[in-house]
Design a protein around this nucleic acid. Structure first.
Ligand SMILES: [Mn+2]
Ligand SMILES: [Mn+2]
Ligand SMILES: [Zn+2]
Ligand SMILES: [Zn+2]
Lengths: 139, 139
DNA sequence: GTATATTTGCAATATTGTTGCAAATTGTTT
DNA sequence: AAACAATTTGCAACAATATTGCAAATATAC
């Protein structure tokens, strides 16, 4: 059984062509994807609405997580196993390369905890770092 | 001379009614503002285009900075003095309250530095934390 | 294979963002 | 303070992005 099918079934989602293709895109991609990337990179072309709904379903089920950006865009990337419906635990650092424009999940770099002023009760942290990625550094 | 005028002049921007009102909104507001907040909270109503252009000008001049979000929105908040045209230094933590929905600049909480894998060259960091703010904790 | 539940695409609508250009406003010069 | 030059604004037209209801298509359960 392949990974895509595996993930969908594990989450009790019915297996449709759209979900298979879109999830595949994420598995194959080395960086995060925006809605637009998905619309333009699927072989079969799905309705824009289907893409929205599929992304939403995937987020709700802990299959992908969102990465905040500063350009009226949301980026999405695969979660690791520990996430599930209503339970995201993607507290790793995200790196946006100014050169190749890719956004990479640094799964092994944990968002450090910080000390908050009295009364603040943190629940989820996100960290996004811009710079030059290791690939672009070499070239 | 009031603060609003002061900031505009310091940056060599001509003083117009729109810029004055919008900058005032930021100075008076206790949280970050989205484009929509600005459009609906100015007494005089400015054209949507003017708001876009004003925000852009303010960002370019280091008067306000952007805060990334995960909902196809950009939040804006006042910079401290050290920022200028092409030079942002807003590496503080941003706190989004799940209760009151406000986004607050924790100007005194610096984004901690993290150790990156070999080859990654970080330039700018942003950190956004969701949780319960101190005001909402009390009530 | 049929029944039931879920998902999809379409269409209509709403919201958000961009561009060119003429009119209005601002800062500068006399 | 009037005239000038430079900048900013609003409008209009357009483009891109997002949301909703609903009927047809598809997927799973039986
Ligand atoms: Mn990630
Ligand atoms: Mn801030
Ligand atoms: Zn790169
Ligand atoms: Zn709050």
């Amino acid at each position: 059984m392949n990974q895509t099918l595996d993930i969908l079934k594990k989450n009790g989602l019915s297996v449709t062509e759209g979900r298979r293709e879109i999830l595949n895109l994420f598995i194959q991609s080395d960086g995060a994807l925006a809605h637009a990337d998905i619309e333009s990179n699927t072989k079969i072309s799905f309705d824009r609405v289907t893409v929205y709904r599929t992304l939403q379903t995937f987020v709700e089920n802990g299959i992908i997580h969102q990465i905040p950006t500063t350009d009226n865009t949301i980026l999405y990337a695969l979660c690791k196993d520990k996430c599930g419906a209503g339970h995201h635990h993607d507290e790793h650092v995200h790196f946006i390369c100014n050169e190749c424009e890719k956004t990479i999940c640094l799964d092994d770099v944990t968002v450090p905890s910080v000390k908050f002023p009295k009364g603040f009760h943190p629940l989820q942290s996100a960290m996004v770092v811009k710079g030059i990625c290791s690939d672009c550094r070499k070239n």
